[in-house]
Write a protein that binds this DNA or RNA. Structure first.
Lengths: 198, 198
DNA sequence: GGCTCTATTGACATTTTTGTAGGTAACTCT
DNA sequence: AGAGTTACCTACAAAAATGTCAATAGAGCC
């Protein structure tokens, strides 16, 4: 019996990259930064590691591309909250969405990873998103930019912290995992309300 | 000229371990989890990498020990805030200290690292610290345990987020780096006040 | 069908990282 | 001073991870 050469799947460059990045993201999320190895990424994507190199040049290339892709996702997700025309409803939902974004799809873990890796330069997209919120719904509600900025800084930081350690923290003190998130959301909401009424 | 065998420093096992962990911590903080290599740790500690293995068995041993040591530090730092006998003063300073703990000495980065690595089991110490605060100053001020827990969850998460991305975030939107921290602290303080008065 | 283009791959080469073994030297105790 | 203990080192070995290269095989086009 002859050895069958494995049947190849040939993708478009874009599809190939996306496929690989998907595997990389999965790995990053469930194994941590340490688990981002060339061969594992390749395996998870169902291709040889040479293919990964072909598309990204090096393992750093993969990291960089992954970071960019994830950030794009994160920002897009947050900005979706701006859809409704009513600024009131927008702000109502903004906290919700913010928390979702950082909690699901590993947003917080992404940010933490970026920080730990020192790749904070890559965050231009985030700046733009923040600017958009400040000049958008915030301004419409008459919050002065200074205060609006502060609020956003706090809200994002909080979402980050909650997304990262919220669940474990709650479980650690014997509460259901969503407790942190709910408490934080309530806390944020009351703070927001206080800031708007003046 | 003869080759001088390098003069050896002989430490006690404890001192040796501490020396090595110090180097490891430095590396973790400035290079990220990826930078925690056996030889680099050894170099930074001024010993051969074989010595590191002698004391910790493996690179994982180093990681584990480091995590434990750092957590111990973090918790100790937070609990220091309980020194003053006056519960009012305690709560006044608790936010401050919490933020310090997570910001300086890489507390937030440690926590993030733990999360990303999935070593969250190791956090028993944290649970104890939280319990202590709840049954200590909080109870004395008459805050019911449920609400106290929620407050702590939020405060810790916030401190975490601020410690991790606070500075970059502020700079990202063109503010001085301490802005996030100050805003968060103010936000937290007003929230705390609200929670106490009822 | 035959041609071109290139995504894909296996096999090899290199570098990095981790781990092992045996001897040496610093310290303590008698 | 001599002996025992063990932290420490150098040198070597093994494994893991990254990267190179030439050949192969899908897919579109003539």
């Amino acid at each position: 019996m002859s050895i069958e050469p494995a049947r190849r799947v040939r993708r478009s460059p874009e599809a190939a990259r996306e496929n690989i990045l998907l595997s990389a993201e999965r790995l990053l999320l469930e194994r941590g930064p340490q688990g981002l190895k060339l061969v594992e990424v390749a395996q998870g994507a169902g291709v040889s590691h040479a293919t990964v190199l072909h598309h990204f040049g090096s393992i750093d290339g993969v990291q960089t591309a992954l970071a960019e892709a994830m950030i794009r996702q994160l920002v897009a997700r947050v900005l979706e909250a701006e859809r409704p025309d009513d600024p009131e409803a927008q702000l109502e939902g903004v906290g919700q969405v913010l928390f979702d974004a950082f909690e699901s799809a590993g947003g917080a873990r992404l940010a933490a990873w970026l920080e730990l890796t020192g790749e904070t330069r890559r965050l231009t997209l985030v700046r733009e998103a923040v600017a958009e919120v400040i000049s958008g719904p915030m301004a419409q509600k008459g919050v002065d930019p200074e205060r609006a900025t502060n609020l956003i800084l706090v809200a994002v930081s909080l979402a980050m912290g909650v997304g990262l350690i919220g669940r474990s923290l709650a479980e650690l003190v014997g509460r259901p995992p969503e407790t942190t998130r709910e408490a934080a959301l309530a806390f944020l909401k009351s703070g927001l309300a206080a800031a708007m009424n003046r």
